[in-house]
Design a protein around this nucleic acid. Structure first.
Lengths: 250, 250
DNA sequence: CAGTGGTCTAGACCACATT
DNA sequence: ATGTGGTCTAGACCACTGC
């Protein structure tokens, strides 16, 4: 379940390098990147490798490839940097320059409650229960309730919980966090949650429930995040996919 | 702006074929696909082509590739089929087997209001304004307000609006719908929206705003979807991406 | 026509998992 | 040692864009 932290292969280095140049406007929005042929010479690689780098940027929504013309740098930074992936609160905080603070309300070892395990894992699975309140500019904004499954996790220092669980898992334990399913709904929260978020009696909350998996497909985290509705914003970049719809290809 | 409708290349055909087999449980969840080598023989292609097919399935969350072992079929169908992409209501309806109906409330030619154009397009851009109410089991659930820009669109038959705008654009006009930015918030809706959704005075709505683009990067659709909060559910599959965060590669 | 991206190939070498 | 996926290459042919 533990994997190498860094794979410094050519395509990732190149993708990262171009992404940085787009962020710093060395490659400006609404202009074309150098052609694939030129990028091959620039980085001294074959064309397929360059194309894999560009494919990563394409998926992220940083560029749009146009046949016969080139790869155009898109101008979506104003709206949003991709948040739809799996991102820790600390990464978000840093990326968006928010004035955020995290308070650990609870950190205990228990078992995952039955209503969360339906079919996904066996009942009575041990886990760390972690409850955290996220403050922005001193105001409570999000309440996170995490079950971090044990195994695979067998220790969770208070400091890691207060700082960044993901950084701890990836950097200290070399966990390879890979994918997640998420669900966003609007609900009438338990009174307890309402209090912690300082909400009025009638207020609804936005609930983001997610199941996060490691690269070897083991489930390791079940989360419910309760957001103040007036502060909630989810942004996404999506490409049209046509695989599952009809007999028609693209 | 108009592009070919279908590219029946090998990698898409193979990806689609495997996706169908996964849906039909010919390849069961929690089992491994045939190895890449075997798939090469099965489909009579080179390995890189097979790998591109598998990469598509990987992005969709249908499989998880594990080095040294194989490509495991994931079991997320129960939760969700990918809805986070750009999907038309009709496609969703069909895929999820809902009992849905669409009522066209308005279809006129106007210009895009200024507050929607900030910086994205020039002011006074002509467009079709389309307002549709979506009913599920006879109950109003979503109100869609679309501005379909003209150009590129110069005609929009009432029938296409009632049926599926996307199908009309892609199949009749060969538009190549490519990507979109989305934003989800919870808001206090205008009284007019509240009435159409049959909501009580205090109720909030979930608003999904999106900007949809063609493959040549021209904006062609600006949408605001108002959802009843009690019925709203957004599901997503996401892979962890690390390009934009730090100096560290994966 | 030349330049661009889109697709495909056959082969190489590596890292990881299994026996 | 064998089988698996991960990366990279050099070259081919095609389709689209623009001069």
């Amino acid at each position: 379940m533990c994997k190498s932290l860094s794979t410094f292969n050519k395509q990732n280095i190149i993708a990262h390098d171009i992404a940085i140049k787009i962020q710093h406007k060395i490659y400006a929005a609404q202009t074309f990147l150098p052609s694939e042929h030129k990028l091959c010479e620039l980085y001294g690689t074959s064309r397929e490798t360059i194309r894999k780098s560009l494919e990563q940027l394409n998926e992220l929504g940083l560029i749009q490839k146009i046949k016969g013309k080139g790869s155009m740098v898109l101008d979506i930074q104003r709206f949003t940097f991709p948040i739809s992936g799996i991102t820790s609160f600390k990464e978000l905080n840093k990326m968006l320059g928010m004035n955020a603070k995290t308070i650990v309300l609870k950190l205990t070892k228990t078992v995952v409650p039955d209503f969360l395990t339906n079919g996904v894992i066996q009942p009575q699975q041990p886990a760390f229960y972690l409850e955290r309140l996220r403050l922005i500019n001193g105001e409570p904004e999000v309440l996170d309730r995490d079950y971090l499954l044990s195994p695979p996790l067998d220790e969770l220092p208070e400091k890691a919980a207060a700082d960044s669980v993901y950084a701890y898992l990836e950097e200290n334990l070399s966990f390879d966090i890979s994918y997640a399913t998420k669900e966003i709904t609007v609900e009438n929260p338990p009174e307890e949650v309402r209090k912690k978020l300082k909400l009025a009696t009638a207020d609804l909350v936005v609930v983001v429930r997610s199941y996060t998996y490691l690269a070897d497909t083991t489930l390791f985290q079940i989360t419910a995040s309760y957001h103040r509705p007036d502060k909630f914003k989810f942004t996404d970049f999506a490409r049209r996919k046509r695989i599952l719809t009809n007999t028609k290809g693209k």
